[in-house]
Design a protein around this nucleic acid. Structure first.
Lengths: 211, 211
DNA sequence: TGACTGAATAATTTGTTGATTATTTACCCC
DNA sequence: GGGGTAAATAATCAACAAATTATTCAGTCA
């Protein structure tokens, strides 16, 4: 970790405190700079602008979450199908909670979604690579009947996009969303599993409860 | 058709002209009233407000489109699977074109989506009933392996929500969207079809071109 | 009584001005 | 040159009056 990285982290940390205390719009670059004992202008040596700091915080958050998910999801004890489903349910629940509990987080999500549509795609791409990994494992052990793992991950993500930023795309309750995700996955997995493989029945059992 | 209905239609027609000429925000209730040879106040005897007129136009549009789709989709010559897919592709293409070609239509769509989230759900519900119809036909002739037709329609809609208001949820091109819809449906249909039924292979053939 | 008007009211938008704030730039220090 | 400052500039925001527009309502007409 270079010196520059360390300062970036300091800025991100200070900004995160401010944002989650007072909200994105209500905190000024000067305040963030003060908290880091530097001048406002100096912030621009580390971030292109205010919105990029917010992006940095968001990216760090999903990176951390995905890292944790990666551990769980690599557990070879569970069938790939179950791991994939648990992963998608976990994503739904944790983002829902995150946006639901804190209006200041929601504010940032809304602004980034509006001003930086590309950012959302980058996050989706990160998720997709984890999904591809699970799919590949499932294809290798005969659970799934898949030609192109990357393409399939793309399609599963496309079919479950509604559950990615729940409050941004619909007004549904978490219960309703979980019900729908369950139903969608039931069909998708039925379509993906090798009928001859015994794990196919797992598509019908209820999802694992959140930890 | 009652006298009242006739006047409603006249108002809708006049408003549609204005909206598509000058945009929703730029047209005033007075102008619509003038075009109908009535006073502004009188409009409120037929519609609750300006936004309700816009809703009326939108509802009429989808009703017309769904009616046409219903004819095509009831054609028993095609397998249910093909009919369902053609329907979904047609929806994607026609809404995409509609929103893409005319910024004034897009303006209305955005405003309704924001101010009247329930309206979108009503339209979805209309679409769902047509989908249920196709699914029921497919279940009856042994193409599909479905327990609950209504629930399944809900899940298919959920998995394809991204293609419903394409420009509102993503920035993708029509080509990319069509590619994704095709991929999603391939998996979904693979999950829904009876493996024993010969039509299952249709899930792999390219979608019918638009008329 | 039902269809309508037009003035009254309430909400929203527009235009303007003076802060604030984000961002850039010219410069300093080690 | 890396790391920083502080003043200059450019955007954006808040406030508030003026004007426009949406909506309501008392009252007219057939």
């Amino acid at each position: 970790m270079t010196q520059k990285d360390r300062i970036c982290l300091r800025i991100l940390h200070a900004a995160k405190e401010r944002f989650s205390h007072y909200g994105y719009c209500k905190t000024t670059m000067s305040e963030i700079a003060q908290d880091c004992n530097m001048s406002p202008g100096n912030l621009y040596r580390y971030f292109q602008g205010k919105l990029d700091i917010a992006e940095g915080i968001a990216a760090a958050h999903t990176d951390k979450r995905l890292e944790k998910a990666r551990e769980i999801v690599r557990d070879p004890a569970k069938p790939a199908l179950v791991r994939l489903r648990d992963f998608l349910f976990d994503e739904l629940r944790s983002t829902f909670k995150l946006l639901d509990e804190d209006p200041r987080v929601f504010e940032i999500a809304e602004i980034i979604a509006k001003e930086r549509p590309e950012f959302g795609n980058q996050q989706l791409s990160k998720e997709r690579s984890l999904m591809s990994e699970i799919l590949a494992a499932g294809a290798a052990n005969g659970e799934f009947d898949i030609q192109d793992v990357v393409e399939t991950a793309e399609m599963i993500q496309s079919a479950t996009i509604k559950f990615r930023f729940p409050q941004l795309y619909s007004q549904l309750t978490l219960d309703k969303l979980e019900h729908e995700l369950n139903g969608v996955l039931k069909i998708l997995f039925h379509g993906l599993t090798c009928r001859s493989h015994p794990i196919a029945v797992a598509a019908d059992v209820p999802v694992s409860p959140s930890p």
